[in-house]
Nucleic acid binder design. Structure first.
Lengths: 107, 107
DNA sequence: TCTTATTATCGTAATATTGCGATATATAAA
DNA sequence: TTTATATATCGCAATATTACGATAATAAGA
């Protein structure tokens, strides 16, 4: 046991859960906020500003990339991680559609 | 290691992450959908419809209650779990405010 | 080419989550 | 009161996540 039984849920349920799950870590929230509002998209800057080890930040960046939220570009000898705004809006709509279609009660 | 370093993040970041995290499991998504769109709010019905053990469903219900999304009321000898619509809307706005304030790129 | 700087990946330890059987608790009905 | 039904909690095993040091890979500049 301990393994999530994804096979008993449908595609949309698993997708929604996966998106929520990846957003469900404060370091990843902080990364997104830094990139967006602090004008900091260089991996090394994030390491210093957030205060986790470089390997850890790199791992979190990888997960955010896995759902398409971030795209990384080589900037000299650094990596510039930027938010994919199209994907960002797509996800926001997807999550909102979940919230809106689940807004009714049975009693 | 292995423990999330919540102390280096601020209250809002931890709150957001906690909400996303709890929504980040397909069983909990399914529970919310069943309650809302299948008119099924009795714990035992959910057990049968979702196909996880009763103990497991009970645990997931507890987590959804922990962020205020569900409230349970005694209905005869069963429990009726309903979505707290005020809290639901509050969360939707909270998540949208995160999405909207993080919608800019540094480059 | 050699060195330096930056990021990714590997391996591993600590902790958290998931799932379930067993059991406790609570309520309704007999 | 006794029995049946429904839910919560406990304890545990399996798996996943988090974090980091060490190291590999890559690119710029001396």
């Amino acid at each position: 046991m301990g393994i999530t039984k994804t096979q008993i849920f449908d595609k949309r349920q698993n997708e929604l859960a996966q998106l929520f799950k990846i957003l469900g870590h404060p370091a990843r929230i902080a990364i997104l906020q830094h990139i967006s509002t602090q004008n900091s998209c260089i991996c090394n800057d994030l390491v210093e500003e957030i205060g986790l080890a470089q390997a850890t930040i790199s791992q979190h960046l990888k997960e955010l990339k896995s759902i398409g939220l971030l795209k990384g570009e080589i900037e000299g000898k650094s990596m510039c991680y930027c938010i994919d705004l199209d994907r960002w809006n797509e996800l926001q709509e997807f999550l909102n559609s979940f919230f809106n279609t689940t807004k009714h009660n049975c009693c």
